[in-house]
Design a protein around this nucleic acid. Structure first.
Length: 641
RNA sequence: GCCGAUGUAGCUCAGCUGGCCAGAGCUACUGAUUUGUAAUCAGUGGGUCGGGGGUUCGAAUCCCUCCAUCGGCUCCA
């Protein structure tokens, strides 16, 4: 007998060699019907694998992330079986589960597959699923595995097997399909009740653009049809919040063919949002002891040779323009300009830390396929600043920057985020990374300390640091599930060296400062794109492009409305007047559609008593208020911090 | 940059098995209406059917090419 311990702390005895499925049955048949896989001693395995010794056991169902993962992995195999049935001779690359479903990369051997074919494949999958074929695991020698796929003519699998060690190779078979796979898998195909193939895309073999491009088919499956319907419904909802759709509807930004791809034009509504964000950033930075600077959009080639951006990053920059025999580049980053500002006047330790901030406009030649709405563009306004400090000051400066991030997150109600802390690989110093071992170790330790001390959720990713120092990228998720890097916070000991930045220390000796690059609000482009989806276009009063819409009942109330308009403008309340000869219902509808926070209905009653009838967007009639009380309220709600 | 899809009025879309002057709703403009909490009525205007080339007696519709956008891949100092 062996002892099995469960997540609730209980321990029960079972026969040696029992499996998770049998254990589940001993608890209840209902549970057994739901078990997709098992976690034995922390490792996810097939529910049918025998357990030979004392172990902790978690039964994984659809409710567990690992359960879903296994379910989708098995679904990928099932799709592969369906594909092979329809397209004989097809070859397979990788077919893993992903966040929402799974994909399989396939080589169709010159055949084409279109959106219409997906329906056909879906039917085949459902048909195969209904057979309740078990997923069978076999351990196989490397030689036998190679023979199998060589005979089948699948060079991708052969290549993969070559990279594996003998003794760790397993095959899984369900129905007529056998795949190289380490598993685990769900008990049988019958669990897969609903299937939807989402789209087709090209994907390079092993993610290398030098390799052949395979066809990637994305799909998602569920144990119940209802769950698929709900998922599709969710996608529809997400579409409604898409910043590209709302950005157009609310007239926030546009792209124009004559201006160029990735070069957004901010319409007045977008301009108003930008104004508020900059006000917030400037106030926050001023309070934190930053100085504002301003630098040109272009610079000579020589500066980018000094910084080291040329020639390595020339591809990401717009091609140079030539003047009097000298090349000039549009700036792709602000740091070199700021370094020149630092070195413009002699510095002593008394000047540090020196914090230089600028909403700098940068231009990057992103590959055409990379452009995405306003989130990934070629001209962007960065909430940039560079902090020059001593090693002693580094940790507290870094901490202060992190606190600024947290302050912003609170203001915007961003509660889902993670910081990716990228560190270097000591073995690659001198090649991929600057050969400054002491600074690497010191700064990485300090950054880690700050993260731990601030209790900020972070993940450490080795070997992903910048060439010149460790960095933190802030990942956030928009409400529609879009994940992206909002901001970056980097340590730099490369550029200070290249630019020969120094300050006089207490002993009157030249010392090199450390530089922290930081951009908590990222770029206007990406951040506003995020905010549009975050708020679904319903901006809080302080950010709303138009805060108040004046809606006179009839033309005879126009004078009163105009008086209010002038009064509000003077108070810097962003107001608009609807002076059309429309009925009030129409004016309200249009203002609601524009998502303007406050609508003021103005008629005889209001004019006589110098009042306004307040209607709030999405909430309806709020009753009357005096002009003063209303203005006071809007101003309070518009105050930043 | 690569694979695939899409591109018709300011917006949303119909027309696309090739064949009368390319349509609708909303918007805009003009007029009437003077209105009390989510669409007043009438009239008018508005389109190189993404650009270019080709096939054809005839192209929004078929073919080629370029551009842009979208879904991915790759990339994001």
């Amino acid at each position: 007998m062996i002892n099995i311990s469960f997540p609730d702390g209980s321990i029960r005895q079972f026969e040696k060699g029992t499996n998770a499925l049998d254990i589940a049955k001993s608890i209840s048949e209902g549970l057994a019907r739901k078990v997709l896989a098992a976690k034995v001693n922390g490792k996810v395995t097939d529910a049918s694998r025998p357990i030979d010794q004392d172990a902790s056991l978690v039964l994984l169902t659809w409710d567990d992330a690992e359960g879903k993962e296994t379910f989708w992995h098995s679904s990928a195999h099932l799709m592969a079986e369906a594909l092979e049935a329809i397209y004989p001779g097809i070859k397979f690359g990788y077919g893993p589960p992903v966040d929402n479903g799974f994909y399989y990369d396939v080589d169709l051997g010159g055949r084409e597959i279109s959106q219409d074919d997906l329906k056909k494949i879906e039917s085949k999958i459902s048909e195969l699923a209904a057979k309740n074929s078990p997923y069978l695991r076999t351990e196989i020698s490397k030689e036998a595995a190679l023979n199998y796929f060589t005979e089948k003519g699948d060079e991708y699998k052969v290549e993969t097997i070559h990279e594996l060690n003998d003794g760790e190779i397993t095959f899984y078979r369900q129905g007529n399909f056998t795949d190289l796979c380490r598993g685990p898998h769900i008990p049988h195909t019958g669990f897969i009740k609903a299937v939807k193939l989402m789209n087709i895309a090209g994907a390079y073999w092993k993610g290398d653009e030098k390799n052949k491009q395979l066809t990637r088919i994305y799909g998602i499956t569920f144990p119940k049809q209802k769950e698929l319907d709900e998922y599709l419904q969710l996608l529809e909802e997400a579409k409604k919040r898409d910043h590209r759709k709302i950005g157009k509807e609310l007239e926030i930004f546009v792209f124009d063919d004559d201006v160029g791809p990735g070069l957004p034009l901010w319409l007045p509504n977008g301009g108003a949002i930008i104004e508020q964000l900059e006000n917030l950033a400037k106030k926050t930075e001023e309070e934190a002891g930053y100085y504002r600077v301003k630098s040109p959009h272009i610079a000579k080639e020589s500066m980018y040779l000094t910084s080291g951006h040329l020639p390595y990053y020339a591809e990401s920059m717009f091609p140079p323009m030539e003047m009097d025999g000298t090349k000039y580049y549009l700036k792709a980053m602000n740091c070199p300009h700021h370094h020149k500002i630092f070195s413009a006047t002699p510095k002593s330790y008394k000047d540090l830390p020196l914090r230089l901030a600028e909403y700098g406009t940068c231009y990057r030649y992103e590959q055409s396929g990379e452009l995405f709405g306003i989130m990934r563009v070629r001209s962007m306004n960065m909430n940039d600043a560079h902090i020059y400090c001593t090693e002693e000051q580094f940790e507290s400066e870094f901490q202060a920057v992190n606190e600024m991030y947290l302050k912003y997150f609170k203001i915007f109600g961003i509660d889902k985020y993670v910081m990716r802390f990228s560190t270097h690989d000591p073995a690659k110093r001198g090649q991929k990374y600057l050969d400054m071992p002491e600074l690497w170790m010191k700064t990485e330790d300090m950054v880690r300390n700050v993260l731990i001390r601030s209790k900020i959720p972070y993940i450490e990713v080795p070997d992903e640091a910048a060439f010149y120092g460790p960095k933190i990228d802030v990942q956030i998720w928009s409400v529609i599930g879009r994940e992206f890097t909002l901001a970056t916070n980097q340590v730099d000991f490369g550029q200070p060296k290249r630019f020969g930045l120094t300050f006089k220390n207490k002993n009157n000796q030249d010392e090199m400062p450390l530089v922290i690059h930081r951009a908590p609000l990222g770029t206007h482009e990406r951040f506003i794109g995020f905010l549009i989806e975050h708020y679904g276009g319903n901006f809080p009063v302080w950010l709303a492009p138009r805060q108040v819409s004046l809606l006179p009942i009839s033309d005879r109330h126009l004078d009163y409305a105009k008086r209010l308009e002038a009064l509000f403008r003077k108070q810097r309340i962003r107001v608009e007047l609807d002076d059309r000869s429309e009925k009030i219902g129409r004016k309200i509808r249009d203002a609601e559609m524009k998502k303007i926070p406050y609508m003021l209905v103005l008629g005889d009653k209001e004019e006589q008593e110098s009042k306004v009838s307040v209607r709030k967007h999405g909430e309806g009639d709020k009753g009357q208020q005096t002009i003063e009380a209303f203005m006071e309220q809007v101003k309070n709600e518009s105050a930043i911090d």
